[in-house]
Amino acid sequence: MSEQDLHPESSESEARRRRMEEELIDSYDEELEMEVDDRILTADGSLDDEARAFRKTYFRELFRLQGELVKLQDWVVSTGHRLVVLFEGRDAAGKGGAIKRITQRLNPRVCRVAALPAPNNRERTQWYFQRYAAHLPAGGEIVLFDRSWYNRAGVERVMGFCTDDEYEEFFRSVPEFEKMLVRSGIQIVKYWFSITDQEQEVRFQSRIEDPLKQWKLSPMDLESRRRWELYTQAKEVMLQRSHIPEAPWWVVQAVDKKRARLNCIQHLLNQVPYHEVEHTAVHLPQREHHEDYLRQPVPTSMIVPELY
């Protein structure tokens, strides 16, 4: 019998510890993540040869895809294209991590994220789509919605924040709303990030145990965990009733965060007919020097202490 067979509880505990370490590391920026991976996961033998090889592939492909995203951005600016990308999924499905990797190398004036809070009293009396429409892109812009108007089909439905009539009106309106946007020249790409019950539990537990990530866990998240099956039903109805040719849904298998990011970015790039835009050569001008210029000293009291 193997050591694992003799001590199954110890083996499970060790696997859980390593899984928590992976979840923690995954939230860091790539540059720091690579260093931490080397120090923690490689040094203690946590990564086997296959995992170590994929880790190298992940960073290589991520940087390559981010380079393509820069080309996409340049093309969007050059052509005046308008692109909207919706990211939906359960809490802790990895939407934010994917959005972060997409925007990481892009100009925030071109590609911005819309993550709207719960509607205020005034917004609740508006046309439902009104507050989302205010964030739609102008020519030469990309907007990534970290959750979107599909809140009504998900959290609002499950938590009882909308009436049955409002819910049905949403599904009557949303296909027409999106068709109208597409007719006006706005491209819409919709992603659902899919994870398992077990994976969400691990990610929630990681947020509970990591003080740097506890802010991500809201009372609403905890309640959504309890209502897993209701969310599943709501998601199934949403995909069925709002999957239209003009703006179809795409499901990202997101249990493995790194693979999900690569797959999502590559798929997004494939949805846009971009090409590399030629740029005029950039030349740094010579700095001007004036004999009468005297640089004024900065008072010591204004200097930030150099502790590092």
Results as ranks from 00 to 15, higher is better:
M1I: 13
M1P: 11
Q4Y: 10
D5H: 08
H7W: 11
H7D: 14
P8K: 09
A15H: 13
R16I: 05
R18P: 02
R19Q: 14
L24M: 14
S27A: 14
E30I: 11
E33G: 13
D37M: 09
L41M: 15
A43D: 12
A43C: 09
D48W: 08
A51P: 02
R52W: 08
R52M: 14
R60G: 06
F63S: 14
L65H: 02
Q66R: 12
K71H: 14
W75T: 08
V77E: 10
S78W: 11
T79A: 07
L86E: 01
K95C: 09
I99Y: 00
R101I: 01
I102L: 08
I102Q: 03
Q104R: 10
A115Q: 02
A115Y: 00
N120D: 15
N121H: 12
R122L: 13
E123T: 03
T125Q: 13
F129C: 07
Q130C: 00
H135N: 12
A138N: 12
G140Q: 02
E141P: 04
E141S: 07
I142W: 04
I142F: 03
I142S: 00
Y150W: 04
A153H: 03
V158K: 05
G160M: 09
E166W: 06
E168A: 11
E169L: 15
R172I: 11
S173F: 09
V174L: 09
V174H: 02
E176T: 12
E178N: 05
K179D: 14
R183D: 14
I188D: 01
I188S: 00
K190D: 01
Y191F: 12
Y191G: 00
D197Y: 15
D197W: 10
V202W: 04
R203P: 01
Q205T: 07
S206T: 12
D210Q: 09
P211M: 02
L212A: 10
Q214P: 00
Q214N: 13
L217Q: 03
S218D: 08
E223I: 06
S224A: 15
R225D: 06
R226A: 13
E229T: 12
T232W: 00
V237G: 02
S242N: 04
I244L: 09
V252C: 07
Q253H: 14
A254D: 03
A254P: 02
R259D: 05
L262I: 15
L268K: 00
V277P: 07
V277R: 03
H279N: 07
T280G: 12
E288V: 06
H290K: 13
H290L: 14
T300D: 13
S301G: 07
M302D: 13
V304R: 15
